[in-house]
């Protein structure tokens, strides 16, 4: 297996008026092709910052970061990843299909090719029939599915997801987690998924990266032993609970109670 993301001694420091903030400190991580990696940790642990650094939305301070063997900037310019934000961030003046067409227009796909991809990705996220709707006519869960379709449309092998279901209620969230797993298996993408829900992380991932704050660092990397086929009730099995316990343990160890 080839590695998609390789971080070596990656550090990122924000200069603020209160002095430097060490958002990431010496992160070493390797993400292989086809993995589903969750990043979990309390707020301020740098999980979102790490994802944004991979996406070249933040600049690293020291260390190296390679995506598909390129620097983060080159990878972004090569459109190597699709990014799903905390909110759907669909443009309200565009219909759902036009929103999915947005990256395709920017990347210069032809009209027939765009139509083909819109149809395929809408089908992938079960939104066929909503193509002509505007975002505000859809529920929050459907909007987030449309934003996933948008990130899938241009066939980047890497999907970066920053708490995509954080604002949704638990029932919708369970459903979307199930859908996401199916989608991941069908498309064989590499997915980096930021969350602060332990069950979500354990349910989805092949690898769970536990992070802790001040300075933001990786405290544990847990490879999941769960089978590929994961019905929702797998969450009651002892195996699942054991992994969840280890994640919780890692979170507790990384958390300092002195403050």
């Amino acid at each position: 297996m080839s590695s998609v993301v390789t971080a070596k001694d990656l550090s990122l420091t924000f200069a603020t008026s209160d002095g430097p903030v060490h958002a990431l400190s010496e992160v070493n991580l390797e993400i292989e092709k086809g993995e589903f990696v969750s990043f979990i940790g309390p707020s301020g642990c740098g999980k979102t910052t790490f994802l944004r650094t991979i996406a070249d939305l933040e600049d690293l301070t020291s260390g190296t970061l390679e995506i598909n063997g390129m620097s983060a900037r080159e990878a972004r310019q090569a459109r190597a990843y699709g990014y799903v934000f905390q909110a759907a961030a669909l443009y309200p003046w565009r219909t759902i299909e036009k929103n999915i067409a947005l990256p395709l227009e920017i990347m210069g796909y032809s009209k027939p090719e765009r139509d083909k991809r819109i149809e395929r990705t809408l089908d992938l996220v079960n939104l066929s029939g909503f193509a002509k709707k505007h975002p505000w006519q859809l529920s929050g869960g459907m909007q987030q599915r449309a934003s996933i379709a948008r990130a899938l449309a241009f066939d980047a092998d890497l999907l970066l997801m920053d708490e995509p279901f954080g604002a949704l209620d638990e029932i919708v969230r369970d459903h979307l987690n199930e859908e996401l797993l199916k989608l991941w298996r069908r498309t064989e993408k590499t997915i980096c998924f930021v969350t602060h829900s332990i069950p979500e992380a354990v349910y989805l991932s092949t690898k769970i990266v536990v992070m802790s704050p001040r300075p933001g660092r990786v405290t544990d990397v847990i490879a999941s032993t769960l089978p590929d086929e994961r019905p929702l009730d797998i969450r009651e099995t002892p195996e699942f609970l054991a992994i969840a316990a280890r994640v919780r343990e890692g979170l507790r160890a990384g958390h300092s109670y002195e403050e």
Partner: peptide
């Protein structure tokens, strides 16, 4: 977030201007 989205597409100035 909308502007970050355009950055992830490596969209140029004019694309960002006209489409967002």
């Amino acid at each position: 977030m909308e502007r970050d989205l355009m950055r992830t597409y490596a969209a140029g100035y004019w694309h960002t201007l006209f489409k967002l």
